[in-house]
Write a protein that binds this DNA or RNA. Structure first.
Lengths: 121, 121
DNA sequence: TGAAAGAGCAACCAAGGGGTTGCATTTCGT
DNA sequence: ACGAAATGCAACCCCTTGGTTGCTCTTTCA
């Protein structure tokens, strides 16, 4: 599955603890923003007007959500003429997966410790 | 890498779209809550007082955070005598990873489509 | 060149989130 | 049985968030 050495695993695991992941999670903690991410990760950059199309919200509301995603790094904005296009950036998502893997691993190890403790009785 | 069949992949992928993931992400979008999860996923259930120890926040503040995590399903509460213990529940985290995998896959496919389009020129 | 499309900016507002204090309730231990 | 420990509940406060409206500015294009 993984090609990484043990030391690389340890490094990425400790790194997974320190970096502030909360803002990234918070940025995805909204249905509107999740749907924006869905649109952006499945195609080429879209302009704000394009992303507002079909939504019941105002252009400015969508803009605010896009800025939240941009601050979290999940999305990048590129100015092109009179329009600003937003494109998906996969790196923070990879970081989140890494963090969740770390949590899962912690939990599995805790269960393993409990199991061996019980069996020792 | 994966042992799942193609139909299983498709089922999990469509499921990844429909369920409301935003509340789960939002629940992890807070440093206090992330540290609580860190404590709970690396050991046995802890009482509220135990989880408050070492924190600069009030017991009630911690309680509120725990309730948020509980509502999201990331944590379960078990009443034991005069204290209520909280324990980690890994299922929502697995769901999040599934969703993030879906997003990454979407993105990879979009890149692949772009690549083949460019090469066709 | 002038109208329309695409955005940015600022003010404003209602609602929710995070945190606190105060008090009541249940349970444990002596 | 009584005090201390562990919580629950409710009210309150402040600040952020999500959303709107109104105005201005730039770019496009006919």
């Amino acid at each position: 599955m993984s090609q990484r050495t043990r030391s690389q695993q340890r490094r990425s695991r400790t790194a997974a603890c320190r970096q502030p992941r909360a803002p990234i999670f918070a940025a995805l903690g909204d249905e509107v923003r999740l749907s924006l991410v869905a649109k952006l990760c499945s195609g080429r950059p879209h302009s704000i007007s394009k992303l507002t199309e079909g939504s019941k919200l105002t252009r400015q509301a969508i803009t605010k959500h896009l800025r939240v995603l941009e601050t979290a790094g999940i999305v990048r904005s590129v100015h092109k003429g009179r329009e600003t296009r937003f494109e998906f950036n996969p790196e923070p998502i990879a970081g989140m997966k890494q963090y969740l893997d770390f949590v899962s691993e912690q939990w599995d190890q805790a269960l393993a410790r409990l199991k061996s403790f019980v069996e020792a009785e």
